[in-house]
């Protein structure tokens, strides 16, 4: 019988996921792996992971990996890529990593037009540390450090990274996706593929923002989380291509 679907070679065979039920990181690790295989770049890819749940992936993947200091993934990737241009370099960062502590590194790498791929996983909350408020936490959404919910008068408003980076001249590709339905998962994979193709072509900075859920810290079950994601998160963070300089 012909095998039509298998586990990507980018994920270790003998590992059992320890990610929470309903967490979308596992989907993301799979999608990235499938793209690397499809583009035949697995053997020359270096992944730079942020600190937080995003970093848990280091145990599951089979290819080169480093953990960056919290928030500095884009700076680390800059060093890797500039010194070894033939290596394909991507960062994998959560919202606290990329948009809070690493905001400066993210914007500066984008502004320099570094030829790297950035995968930004936005679930609106700090996961590993236990549900603290993130720069992308929705107004009114409760967090352990905003027990009354995010209050704009005190905490300001959610940060929109695609929109912010779209103010810069250098980035070539900015898209916001999600993984809540099979159709959206396929769209996300296409976006990731495009972001890597851009790098292979030497086009410059690409970022794919993926809106995901965190059932554990949202205090919802996985199914309720999908509903919350659809109704609340995607209202605040609209999906779509924000920039595509490589479009024919």
């Amino acid at each position: 019988m012909e095998k039509v679907y298998g586990r990507t070679a980018a994920i270790q065979k003998d590992m059992v996921s320890s990610l929470c039920p309903g967490c979308m990181h596992s989907t993301m690790f799979k999608l990235i792996g499938e793209v690397l295989e499809k583009l035949d770049i697995l053997s020359r890819t270096a992944s730079v992971f942020g600190i937080g749940c995003c970093g848990l992936g280091m145990q599951y993947i089979t290819y080169d990996n480093v953990t960056a200091p919290h928030g500095r993934a884009c700076a680390v990737a800059t060093g890797v890529k500039r010194s070894t241009p033939e290596t394909i370099v991507y960062t994998y960062q959560g919202d606290g990593d990329l948009a809070s502590i690493g905001l400066g590194e993210t914007i500066s790498a984008a502004n320099r037009g570094e030829n790297i791929t950035v995968i930004f996983v936005n679930n609106g909350i700090y996961g590993m540390t236990g549900g603290q408020m993130a720069p992308t936490t929705l107004v009114g959404m409760k967090a352990s450090t905003a027990p009354g919910g995010r209050n704009p008068k005190e905490h300001g408003y959610p940060l929109h990274m695609c929109e912010i980076l779209n103010q810069l001249t250098a980035p070539v590709y900015l898209e916001r996706c999600t993984c809540n339905t099979p159709a959206n998962v396929i769209k996300t994979r296409k976006a990731i593929e495009k972001a890597f193709q851009n790098q292979i072509q030497g086009a410059g900075f690409s970022m794919v923002e993926v809106v995901t859920s965190c059932p554990t810290n949202w205090g919802l079950d996985p199914i309720e989380s999908l509903k919350f994601l659809e109704e609340k998160m995607l209202t605040e963070f609209p999906l779509g291509v924000y920039r595509d300089r490589q479009e024919a």
Binding site: P69, A75, V76, A77, T78, G79, V80, R82
Partner: peptide
């Protein structure tokens, strides 16, 4: 961090 990346 860039130097950390490059030296790797």
């Amino acid at each position: 961090s860039m130097v950390y990346g490059a030296a790797q």
